[in-house]
Amino acid sequence: MKRVFNLSGGKTSAYMTIAEKPDPNDIVLFTDTGREHPLTYKFLDDIEKHEGFKIHRATYIHHRSPGKTGFDALTSWKRFLPNRARRICTVELKIRVARRYLRPLIGTKFEQFIGFRYDEPNRVKNYRQTYKHTITRFPLYEQGVTKEMVNDYWQNKPYTLEIPPILGNCDLCFLKGKNSIIKIMAQYPELADKWIEDERRANAGRDRRIGNFFPDITYAELLEMALAQQKDFDLEAALPAYSCTCA
């Protein structure tokens, strides 16, 4: 049976993939939302260069959003933006993109590998309950690999992901929570532009609160708060407010 390694662009899934030694018959898949930090893409390039295997890269496109891809394509035609209650971004940009990409290559029967660690038992449990009919392995969980072990591994490599963990996945994802988003914006205010534009476009000609990522505040307001504080936050210690299954 074909093996598919889900590579999110982070250190943990990269560790898992490298440790499992994918061969040319396997597929290492990165589903690109288009909202990753630029250094995530550099990390993927470095993996291919140093480890010698190909990373398949798939992204979302839609006929209603010609010329756009990923998150930009999705939010350009949807009547509402993703939020905690309606996680359409995970379904559309990750799950369905992966299925559409894999189907013509290997069909619908394959063994997939996901990089949930031993110290993430709830993620493993939730995934198994939600996707009961998939053939899925969690080698890091099975082998007792923890976050500390993953970090130790990357300290001894000639390359690594050069951003704090909080900047992984979509750079200003609403699941990171308002406090973490403010901390990120304080150091990288330029990241806010595309998220502010999403809300502006979604709310054009409507009540200002319709279609925002948060029900009670806009990304423009979060940016104002971040710039007003003018603090150098420790992003290495920042944690997301909610669990993210996008990986």
Rank of each mutant, 00 (worst) to 15 (best):
S8P: 05
G9P: 00
G10N: 03
S13G: 07
I18E: 02
D23S: 13
D23W: 13
P24M: 06
F30S: 00
F30Y: 00
F30T: 00
T31E: 07
T31S: 10
G34R: 00
G34P: 01
E36S: 01
H37K: 09
Y41E: 02
I47T: 00
E51C: 06
A58W: 12
I61P: 04
H62M: 11
H63K: 13
L74F: 08
T75A: 13
V91M: 08
R96Q: 15
A98W: 12
R100H: 13
Y101T: 03
R103N: 11
I114V: 05
F116S: 06
R117E: 08
Y118E: 14
P121Y: 04
K125C: 09
N126G: 04
Y127H: 03
R128F: 01
Y131F: 15
Y131P: 02
K132D: 07
H133A: 10
I135D: 12
I135P: 02
E142C: 08
G144K: 03
G144C: 04
K147L: 10
P164W: 14
I166P: 08
I166C: 11
C170W: 12
D171V: 13
F174S: 10
F174Q: 06
K176F: 10
K178L: 14
I181E: 09
I182G: 09
I182C: 09
A186Q: 07
A186S: 15
Q187Y: 04
Y188G: 02
Y188P: 00
K194D: 13
E199A: 13
R201D: 09
R201S: 07
A202H: 12
R206Y: 09
I210F: 09
Y219N: 15
A220H: 11
F233C: 13
D234M: 06
D234K: 03
D234E: 08
A238P: 00
A241N: 06
Y242E: 14
T245C: 11
